[in-house]
Structures are given as C-alpha cells and as structure tokens.
C-alpha cells in the first residue's frame, strides 16, 4: 500500500480516538484515549521516514500523559453538566466549515503532489548537507548548523517558560508564608 493510504487510515484512527475521549464519562479512560492522537502522530512520522520527529513526539506524549494523570486524576474536574445542543450555533458552525472547504478546493489543486519537495533550499541541504557540515544525520545538520538561530529561539522560549513558572511558585510560597504568619 502507498504511504498516503496508511496516513488516511491513521488519521481516521486519530479522529475516532479524539471523539472517544470527548464522549467518555470516566476521566482516566478519556486521558488514555487522548494518547491515541499522539501515538497516531508519531506512527505517521515513522511512515513519512522522519524517525527524529517520531522519537521526540512519542517521548513528549509519555511526558504529557504523566502530567495529565497527576494533575487531573485526584481532582473533581469531571463534573457532569447537562449540555443542551444549541441548534442555531452548531448549524452556523457547520455551514461556515462547509463554505471554507468549498472555497479551498482550488488551493488543494494548486498543491504539489505528495512527497515532492517544495523548496530549492531543501534540495541544497539534501545534496550538500553531509559535505558542508560533516554530520551524518541530516536533521542535526539542519537544526544545529544551517538553522541554529531557530534552535536558539526555541531554547529562549524554554528558558523564559521555566523562569516564569519558578517565579509563580516563589510568589505562591511567599504568600503561603505570610498567611501562616498572620493567622
């Protein structure tokens, strides 16, 4: 079977998993069904011959599952509220989605066929990457040599995120200390 068929199969699997996660009443089963989406993405990366991305996606999925389980399992977040279907709102949503789909048919025709490289820079990287950087792994040569500036930006994002969350933690512990002193 060609890769496209497998990808469509994985996409249907992921959509079914997310619908199951929405509809399940039990929060533990719901979190496990969310994991299907991440698993599908990493298997899709494997089919498209991107093992680097597949490894990172799979590991981050495990990490996110552990955090979700620890954060939500003990709390009473799963309060059932009887949600009535708003016919007007859902009708408008479906009509808008169909309109966007109809308008974008011409865009689908303009897309290049599956697996064809779009950029000439990418062709240059594939042809000369190993010789210019000396790295056998082409992905490493792109993210750490040709596009190392992007990686610096990603690291800055992580750095700022950790700094912000540690600041919030410090503020919270100070407030707790003040509260215990005054009481």
């Amino acid at each position: 079977m060609p890769t496209e068929t497998w990808l469509i199969f994985i996409l249907i699997f992921m959509i079914l998993g997310s619908i199951t996660a929405l509809e399940l009443k039990d929060i533990l089963s719901s979190i496990i069904s969310i994991g299907i989406v991440g698993l599908g993405v990493s298997v899709a990366f494997l089919f498209m011959q991107a093992p680097d991305l597949a490894i990172v996606q799979f590991l981050f999925e495990i990490f996110a599952m552990i955090i979700l389980l620890r954060a939500f399992l003990k709390k009473d977040y799963h309060q059932e509220s009887t949600s009535r279907l708003n016919w007007l709102l859902s009708g408008v949503t479906i009509i808008v989605l169909i309109a966007i789909f109809l308008f974008s048919i011409s865009v689908f025709n303009a897309l290049p066929p599956f697996g064809q490289p779009l950029l000439t820079t990418a062709e240059h990287y594939i042809a000369h990457g190993a010789a210019e950087t000396g790295a056998a792994n082409l992905v490493a040569s792109v993210i750490l040599d040709y596009r190392a500036y992007d990686t610096l930006g990603e690291i800055t994002v992580l750095f700022t995120a950790i700094l912000g969350s540690l600041t919030i933690l410090r503020i919270q512990s100070q407030r707790k200390k003040e509260g215990s002193e005054s009481s």
């Binding site: 040599d145 995120a161 969350s165």
Partner: peptide, 24 residues
C-alpha cells in the same frame, strides 16, 4: 566529527532535560 554540532547537542540536552523536570 561535525564541528560544533555535538557541543550544541549536549547543551540542548542538558537544557531540555532539566527544564522539563523543573516544570514537573
């Protein structure tokens, strides 16, 4: 081999490992 790429890889590895653990 590959010049600065392994050095930057090690630095990114330290960064990602410790920052994700600090988030937890």
């Amino acid at each position: 081999s590959a010049g600065t790429i392994p050095v930057l890889n090690i630095l990114i590895g330290i960064k990602v490992a410790l920052s994700l653990f600090l988030v937890v």
